[in-house]
């Protein structure tokens, strides 16, 4: 009997429109409360839906979707897509009102200089001592960006620097306890949401992706690596001397060739590290701690690594960052530019920025000078003289305009709905990014996964959501009308067992949810 897996994904979406953000967020949730069958949580604007997922406004003021608990990467991608379909439909209703237009983006970083990053957090249930995870998992997290990177630009660079994974610029350490500041490659949060003794690995170094294959591979390979660590069959000898430095090196290398120092032994490329994990996984295919979909993942994993080794541009219709790299290379060529010429100009801008603000080297200060049109030309002359930069003001201005154009393209790539660049390319039939088993998305908009507490949660909300007053969190569902509770602390629960609330519990629940006395 194969081991069950459980995984989930939380995605933060950037919101933009011509009405105030607070109004747009409130209207989005008002539409959701009106149009979607749901159970509310203890917080305002926080809904559990009949497909088992959760839609809420998160700290920082953005909509966030959490998938239900899924048992395979195919199921996970299906519910991410179902969630995005739900959001797109809500946007259509909002934008019909003509009060204003609102858009949502799968964005990972902002390009305004504000330093914002939108998270895409992965969860994996496991039974390993959490202290064993970082050393064994970090080399995977550092190197998987060769297929799981969203692609884009380094948001903290003053020029134009392509990155396989823009969120890497916002990571500051190998291991962290924080999720909003000092983010780490490995996050130590361990809120199991299970009464069975498992732990929940919570990763925040990943990115929101458009390619189904990239999203599926990331979930599948990471699940297998976690299972190998649990079974003590993970590869040895791939610890890195400086994981964060290695991740930044890999993110800046679209050729996927650069090597970084290992903790011991010869230097390693991202592909070499991934090969080690893949070979170890292939040796575990018959093991009971591996899920029954491990074969599919290893087959696709091997195929993608082979194509990356041959020529990453072969994946320009399949994975996020190679798609973007191909599109942006084309934009450069149309202007008679190359990545090399862009790189030289970006290097000059970095030098000028350092000269301008040697004490703080803050991006904001740099942007302020450049946007002050009257003084910018003069400031640039002074700076370029100081740094012996051969770039004239006119060339700089054209470069910065092109930079804005690329950033615009980058943000619009992941826009939800028919206007998004990725969606347009997909509808045009020029992409080949499908992943094994990812189908039934339309059904997943209303139906929960087939097993586990996600099914019980979703079925109950569908059955009672219109007639009973329901409250929910990941481990409980309360029927306030019937004064009873469904205990869902076992994520693999298969039957719904209602329990009547005692008078004491009822008082406590009433207080918790601040319900009206008339209930």
């Amino acid at each position: 009997v194969k081991s069950p897996c459980l995984l989930g994904l939380e995605t933060e979406y950037a919101i933009f429109g011509d009405r105030p953000r607070g109004n747009a967020l409130a209207e989005l949730m008002r539409q959701a409360e009106f149009r979607l069958r749901h159970a509310t949580s203890a917080r305002r604007r926080d809904l559990f839906l009949q497909n088992g997922s959760r839609l809420y406004l998160d700290t920082g003021g953005h909509p966030e979707l959490a998938t239900p608990e899924c048992t395979s990467p195919s199921e996970l991608v299906r519910y991410v897509l179902a969630g995005e379909s739900i959001l797109s439909e809500l946007l259509q209703f909002m934008n019909r009102s003509r009060i204003g237009s609102t858009r949502l983006y799968r964005a990972n970083v902002d390009y305004s200089g504000a330093g914002t990053s939108w998270g895409c957090h992965e969860s994996y249930l496991h039974r390993t001592d959490p202290s064993r995870l970082p050393d064994s998992l970090i080399p995977h997290l550092v190197s998987r960006i060769v297929y799981a990177g969203a692609g884009g630009f380094d948001p903290l660079a003053p020029g134009i620097e392509f990155s396989l994974s823009p969120r890497v610029a916002h990571l500051q350490r190998a291991i962290s306890t924080d999720s909003t500041y000092n983010r780490g490659i490995f996050h130590t949060k361990n809120e199991p949401l299970s009464s069975r003794g498992e732990h929940r690995l919570h990763l925040l170094c990943g990115e929101s992706l458009c390619s189904h294959l990239a999203s599926w591979l990331r979930a599948g390979t990471t699940s297998l690596v976690v299972a190998m660590i649990e079974g003590r069959r993970h590869p040895r000898g791939i610890a890195l001397k400086d994981p964060l430095g290695a991740m930044k090196t890999f993110a800046a290398d679209p050729d996927c060739r650069r090597e970084v120092p290992a903790a011991s032994g010869p230097p390693l490329s991202a592909l070499a590290i991934q090969r080690k994990y893949l070979e170890a996984a292939e040796a575990c295919l018959e093991e009971s701690f591996f899920p029954d979909w491990a074969d599919d993942v290893c087959r696709e994993w091997r195929a993608v690594l082979a194509r990356l080794e041959s020529d990453p541009s072969e994946l320009a219709t399949s994975l996020d960052w190679p798609m973007k790299r191909a599109l942006y290379t084309r934009r450069l060529e149309l202007r008679g530019l190359t990545w090399e010429s862009i790189s030289r100009t970006s290097g000059l801008l970095s030098a000028a920025r350092r000269a301008m603000d040697p004490l703080t080297d803050r991006f904001k200060a740099w942007e302020t000078v450049l946007r002050c049109q009257d003084g910018a030309s003069f400031a640039w002359q002074r700076l370029s003289s100081h740094t012996r930069c051969p770039l004239g003001w006119d060339e700089l201005e054209a470069f910065l305009q092109f930079r804005l154009e690329l950033f615009e393209t980058e943000i619009r790539f992941g826009e939800l709905g028919p206007d998004g660049l990725f969606t347009q390319l997909d509808l045009a039939g020029v992409l080949s990014h499908s992943a094994p088993g990812v189908s039934g998305v339309a059904r997943a908009v209303s139906d929960p996964p087939a097993t586990g507490r996600a099914k019980i949660r979703g079925d109950t909300i569908r059955e009672l959501g219109a007639t009973a007053e329901l409250r929910c969190d990941w481990m409980h569902l309360w029927d306030l009308t019937g004064r009873r509770v469904l205990e869902l602390s076992d994520p693999f629960a298969s039957t719904a067992s209602w329990r009547t609330l005692s008078e004491c519990e009822w008082e406590s629940i009433r207080g918790r949810f601040d319900i009206l006395a008339s209930l």
Partner: peptide, 30 residues
């Protein structure tokens, strides 16, 4: 793919009328 990409990008950039969303979407993340 590249031709389709050009068409889509040009369409998006012309819609924006010079007001780029790319450098104004900034708040709300974490």
């Amino acid at each position: 793919m590249l031709e389709a990409g050009d068409r889509a990008i040009n369409r998006v950039l012309s819609q924006d009328n010079g007001t780029f969303v790319g450098t104004t979407v900034q708040s709300g993340g974490q």
